[in-house]
């Protein structure tokens, strides 16, 4: 028997009902991540990145229908009783979100919010102890004057500082897996790098399995070990980060690499993939990417390619190997 990965998602499908019919926003996604490993998940807005990971943790909208498998330390999360799932969330599996402005409760002090995470999972800890730990955590994420800041409300913090608070809260119970859903997208460019450094530093120190969701492949270059590229709710390419940048095999991945903002390239010449991803329920037949694909052939609009793995490099394109 092969070793269990920390977190393994397989053929995960999430559908939303519209006019009595279900449409899949996530269409059989799969990836895995281990202790101490950073998996990047990249894809355009609306490709199903958030919906996918949220559904894996049972955090999907009430209207969603979830199928497939998400195993954490060998335990199946899909269909797990709610109270068991709750014990894992915030304790073994933590999450941080895109918008630090709205992901903290505006009427609770940041200290109370961090302490809540601790108290929820450690009934033996006193409020005082939880607050002390909250201060230590703020210090851990390099927030100055943590003993004063702990009693402040979120609106007294800048965006970057709030994201640090979110990170502090996420690692409060020393989790095994951290899922960061576009942790820097809403922040200023200068702050983005700082937050990434905090995350990377903690990931190494705590030996976290980290899933880093982003739509900027550039962010992953320096931080991820492996990358899964998602298009329209499917993984279209998966590879080690160096391999992916050296030998991108899917036309979509090549488009993403070409559109990475680069200081050396003039703004006007910045590449972007033509067109937009198909909206929910308006999926084209064959390869979902074919209307936008520069390499598309006749077969692409007829038959959907499946993910094929060559060594450690998977790609879902009819011309994946040759291209």
């Amino acid at each position: 028997m092969t070793r269990q990965p920390l977190f393994a998602v397989q053929d995960l499908r999430v559908a939303f009902a519209r006019d009595g019919e279900y449409f899949e926003a996530v269409r059989g996604i799969g990836f895995h991540v281990d202790h101490g490993e950073v998996l990047g998940i990249v894809g355009e807005s609306g490709s199903g990145k958030s919906v996918g990971v949220l559904a894996a943790l049972g955090l999907q909208a009430k209207t969603a229908r979830v199928r497939g498998s998400a195993r954490f330390q060998g335990r199946e999360l899909i269909g797990m009783p709610r109270h068991e799932l709750r014990q894992l969330r915030g304790s073994r599996i933590a999450m941080i979100f895109q918008d630090p402005l709205s992901s903290l409760n505006p009427v609770m002090t940041v200290g109370a919010q961090i302490a809540e995470t601790i108290l929820l999972h450690n009934p033996a800890v006193s409020k005082k102890q939880a607050m002390d730990r909250a201060i230590a955590l703020l210090e851990l994420v390099a927030i100055p004057q943590p003993d004063r800041r702990v009693a402040q409300f979120p609106h007294e913090f800048s965006g970057g500082m709030r994201q640090r608070v979110m990170i502090a809260m996420a690692v409060a119970n020393d989790p095994d897996l951290l899922i960061a859903d576009e942790p820097t997208t809403a922040l200023d460019v200068t702050v983005q790098a700082q937050i990434m450094d905090v995350l990377a530093d903690l990931q190494k120190r705590l030996n976290l399995g980290l899933i880093l969701i982003t739509h900027d492949l550039g962010v992953l270059a320096g931080h991820a070990d492996r990358v899964a590229v998602v298009y329209s709710g499917e993984v279209v390419e998966e590879a080690g980060v160096d391999d992916l940048f050296k030998r991108p095999s899917h036309p979509y991945t090549r488009g993403l690499i070409a559109s990475i903002p680069n200081m050396l390239v003039e703004k006007e010449r910045l590449f972007s993939i033509d067109g937009a991803p198909p909206p929910l329920g308006k999926l084209p037949g064959g390869c979902a990417f074919h209307p936008r694909c520069p390499q598309a052939q006749a077969i692409c609009s007829e038959t959907a390619p499946v993910l094929e793995t060559f060594g450690d490099h998977g790609v879902a394109c009819h011309f994946g190997r040759s291209a």
Binding site: L59, L88, R89, L104, N105, L120
Partner: peptide, 8 residues
């Protein structure tokens, strides 16, 4: 969502 993700 944050609160739910905390395990509340």
């Amino acid at each position: 969502l944050t609160a739910r993700a905390k395990g509340a």
